[in-house]
Design a protein around this nucleic acid. Structure first.
Lengths: 140, 140
DNA sequence: TATTGTTATACTCTATAACTATA
DNA sequence: TATAGTTATAGAGTATAACAATA
């Protein structure tokens, strides 16, 4: 059986990312949190008072998709909203959100460590530099 | 504005893959073909007579999701089906499918070249080895 | 005019369960 | 019993268009 995709690094990138995301999702499932929600909570934790549109710019999530996402976290009492002006609202974690984000960070850190552990040490630095270069160069 | 995700290679992997896939999808759109469809056509081209479940194993696509995918390509007269036994059917490209897959390969090759070009030469080998290692180690 | 947030909607890919018919 | 293909359905993430309220 020939695998014509094997020769394409871009296809390997896709498969590596899909496998890694599936693993992260299953790790986070014990907290009933999805990867995208986890990243939003981590960004709010690092930037108290940040707005939805600012989060969207950092994480490349369209404003239209940030709305239900933020609303879900708000309804779970993980984030609080405070009006900045008539159209913006600053987000910050609630107490429960802070507790949760610390658990999330533990899981993410373990996941990231295992991910790097799967890459032969000799290629680790190149891998990290490579995905960072693609992220920066291709997210425009 | 702090970006707490920047330090995580796994997050960079996700963003790099998402950006690359968006680019590939837009490149392939001129042929009205999606990335997943393109990979199926390339696998059938390389393995005439292959079955749906074999394609699914190669590309990690569940049988349930292969059915509508294959049916779509069949309805577009890009693939032909020939019964192997009562439950399997061998797939091969039609004439039109063969013409299309050659156009797909041109686009994919150009896309892959540009992807590698975005990675500094010094990190290219490490990147490729890294995504391959993750693909192999984590797709189990 | 541009921006923030929102709603509605659709698309792509993936995941699970259940069913048939065959081996 | 196990396998190939199918159907139905749901979920996650993303994309576009349109709108109201505000700056």
């Amino acid at each position: 059986m020939k695998d014509p995709m094997m020769r394409y690094p871009g296809y390997a990138l896709r498969r590596a990312s899909a496998a890694a995301m599936a693993r992260l999702a299953s790790d986070l499932a014990v907290l009933s949190v999805r990867p995208t929600e986890a990243s939003v909570l981590m960004v709010v934790d690092a930037n108290p008072g940040i707005t939805q549109s600012e989060i969207g710019k950092l994480l490349d999530i369209a404003r239209a998709n940030m709305a239900p996402l933020a609303s879900r976290l708000h309804k779970r009492h993980l984030m609080a909203r405070a009006r900045i002006d008539g159209r913006s609202q600053g987000l910050r974690l609630t107490e429960a959100g802070g507790v949760l984000v610390r658990r999330i960070e533990k899981i993410v850190t373990a996941y990231e460590a295992e991910l790097l552990a799967r890459i032969p040490a000799a290629h680790r630095a190149g891998f990290v530099a490579g995905v960072r270069a693609l992220w920066g160069a291709w997210s425009q």
